[in-house]
Design a protein around this nucleic acid. Structure first.
Lengths: 236, 236
DNA sequence: CGCGGAATTGAAAGACGTCAAACTGTGTGG
DNA sequence: CCACACAGTTTGACGTCTTTCAATTCCGCG
């Protein structure tokens, strides 16, 4: 399931920013060539294996991150010790924006899949944001995007019956290719996303399989009957 | 319950910004005297009675708002027609930040109490934000604050059993004065905040009253046994 | 081939939603 | 001033969904 290719090289990559595969949709999309020359504090590329932690809540570190590949969960622990997954970070997303304001991280960030990311020094981003209006606007956009996503997370994934929540989660995880396939997570993580128990998540997913709405095609990979799910998602 | 004092005056108040009672904690806290002189597009003060709508989701209007007095709910409607309250705006909070990016409003904003607010033109705020670093930083702070609040809303108010959610909501609504009192909302609104039904909300609150944890002292006003609620909030 | 963690399943209890009726307080009109 | 109508709240009864706790099965890996 996991191809473990830890990248140990911590390179100071200016050239690579310019050539970056995801650059057109990345935070730095609006940077001019000459801007890259002014980056002195190195931008480090790092890799995480599934399950590894990127940062902890409360930790105070002047870095934000762009995800290049993989999947990161932002987690909060509840008083009773259980966890709730608050948001997912996907490739081209940025996390750790709060460090731009000198604040500690708000969540635990944990890799759900093997991941690669770029670590950006908060100072550098702050300075570039002052000098480059496009980057600055892009930053605001990211902030707003995170907020919109948080609100959607609440209304889609924490509202209504468990079946509906699962239907909406799977739809959200299914790219609109055809045939529609999606990569699910452990039942425990699904529970932590939806605010339901592991068993309930398991029961419902097993049931969807029996109904033929999901068809297993690999470890936690399914082919999806999107129409049936869409139907489930807003009515029983 | 409601003292209806609709403010009809839509004044172009520069002087009043400087003298504003909430100015020290307002968005414009960092503005210099000379900055106020550069505001040409008028800042309008408006008032809403409980139940009135400030703006609709999808509406495209270049204004954001600071709440001076009262309480505003940000609402999303679900496919099935019911509503979910996504966040509350309290005095000194800002709402409608998305218009700074030229985007339509993400929510319906409805007054839960009689409210007064200032309407700020997005252009003006954008310009001032470019010219004044303190204001600019304050804006980012507000954005981050909204995001943190959204995450807390999810973990506090949409997680766990209905009793716990209600306990946490009441605690959150109770200022730390003594004796601790709080102003509740209609049972329907409480349901929409917590993702439970009106009846469940009513049952539990009625039950808390019978247990003496809440004691009615006015229309939807209660004296609160905070210790008992804190106890409820993270265990059964 | 057996081990261990994850997933699934079962049974029973409890929580919550649904539908409907009774109750309360408030404002209105007689 | 009282009776009534209305909207919100409370309560009841019942069914369904979800959790809980436990047992079992499945699957990847050593």
């Amino acid at each position: 399931m996991l191809d473990k290719i830890p990248l140990k090289e911590a390179w100071t990559g200016l050239a690579d920013c310019e050539q970056c595969a995801i650059r057109k949709s990345a935070l730095f999309a609006g940077l001019r060539l000459e801007d890259f020359g002014t980056i002195h504090d190195p931008i480090v590329q790092t890799a995480l294996c599934a399950g590894e932690t990127l940062y902890h809540a409360g930790e105070h570190s002047p870095h934000l991150f762009t995800l290049r590949r993989g999947l990161i969960k932002l987690v909060r622990y509840l008083p009773d010790g259980s966890q709730r997954i608050v948001r997912l970070i996907r490739p081209t997303d940025v996390t750790g924006l709060e460090t731009l304001l000198g604040k500690p991280y708000e969540h635990h960030a944990v890799a759900m899949q093997d991941s690669e990311l770029c670590r950006l020094p908060a100072d550098t981003v702050n300075r570039l944001s002052r000098e480059n209006p496009t980057l600055h606007r892009e930053l605001l956009n990211r902030w707003q995007q995170a907020l919109a996503e948080a609100d959607q997370w609440l209304t889609d994934l924490s509202t209504g019956a468990a079946r509906q929540r699962i239907a909406r989660l799977i739809l959200r995880l299914t790219p609109s290719d055809s045939p529609p396939r999606c990569q699910l997570f452990s039942r425990e993580e699904i529970g932590a996303i939806l605010g339901i128990t592991t068993e309930t998540a398991s029961r419902i997913i097993a049931d969807l399989r029996r109904q033929g709405i999901l068809e297993a095609i690999g470890p936690n990979r399914y082919q999806v009957d999107t129409a049936a799910l869409a139907n489930l998602s807003d009515g029983p």
